[in-house]
Amino acid sequence: GKELVLALYDYQEKSPREVTMKKGDILTLLNSTNKDWWKVEVKATANDKTYERQGFVPAAYVKKL
């Protein structure tokens, strides 16, 4: 199945390749080969529509579930 990670801290994206997350968010882990930056998929809701974004977050800010 898919691997999930838990956001340990809030993170505000600093570039278009990154994604914003809030502490407590559960994210889908896409790639953890880089030890510093993990690629995740974030589900977000805006205007009653759910959309998914993929991007990088600092590996130290998340932990595998």
Rank of each mutant, 00 (worst) to 15 (best):
G1I: 12
G1T: 13
K2Y: 13
K2Q: 11
K2M: 11
E3C: 15
E3D: 10
L4H: 08
L4R: 09
V5D: 00
V5E: 00
V5I: 07
L6R: 08
L6S: 04
L6Q: 09
A7V: 09
A7E: 00
A7W: 02
L8C: 09
L8R: 05
Y9M: 10
Y9H: 10
Y9W: 11
Y9T: 07
Y9D: 06
D10P: 05
D10W: 03
Q12P: 05
Q12I: 14
E13Y: 04
E13N: 07
K14C: 12
K14S: 09
S15V: 04
S15I: 04
P16A: 12
P16E: 11
P16V: 09
R17E: 11
R17W: 15
R17G: 14
R17F: 12
R17N: 13
E18F: 06
T20I: 03
T20P: 06
T20A: 06
M21P: 00
M21F: 10
M21Q: 01
K22S: 08
K22I: 07
K22C: 10
K22H: 08
K23Y: 04
K23C: 07
K23E: 06
K23D: 02
G24Q: 03
D25R: 02
D25Q: 14
D25H: 05
D25P: 00
I26N: 01
I26L: 08
L27Y: 08
L27P: 01
T28S: 08
T28H: 09
T28K: 12
L29M: 03
L30I: 13
L30K: 04
L30V: 10
L30T: 04
S32F: 06
S32M: 08
S32N: 08
T33R: 11
N34V: 05
K35T: 10
K35G: 08
D36M: 13
W37L: 02
W37T: 02
W38H: 01
W38N: 01
W38E: 00
W38I: 04
K39S: 06
K39N: 06
K39C: 15
K39M: 15
K39H: 08
V40W: 01
V40D: 00
K43G: 09
K43D: 07
A44W: 15
A44H: 14
A46I: 15
A46N: 13
A46K: 13
N47V: 09
N47S: 10
N47E: 11
E52Y: 15
E52A: 15
E52H: 15
R53F: 05
R53T: 06
R53E: 03
Q54G: 05
Q54F: 07
Q54Y: 07
G55P: 01
G55E: 00
G55W: 04
F56R: 01
F56V: 06
F56Y: 14
F56Q: 03
V57W: 02
V57M: 02
V57D: 02
V57A: 02
V57R: 01
V57I: 08
P58L: 05
P58V: 03
A59I: 02
A59T: 05
A59C: 06
A60M: 10
A60C: 14
A60T: 11
A60F: 08
Y61T: 06
V62E: 02
V62C: 15
V62L: 15
V62R: 01
V62K: 02
V62I: 07
V62W: 03
K63T: 13
K63W: 09
K63P: 02
K64Y: 09
K64Q: 08
K64V: 11
L65K: 02
L65N: 02
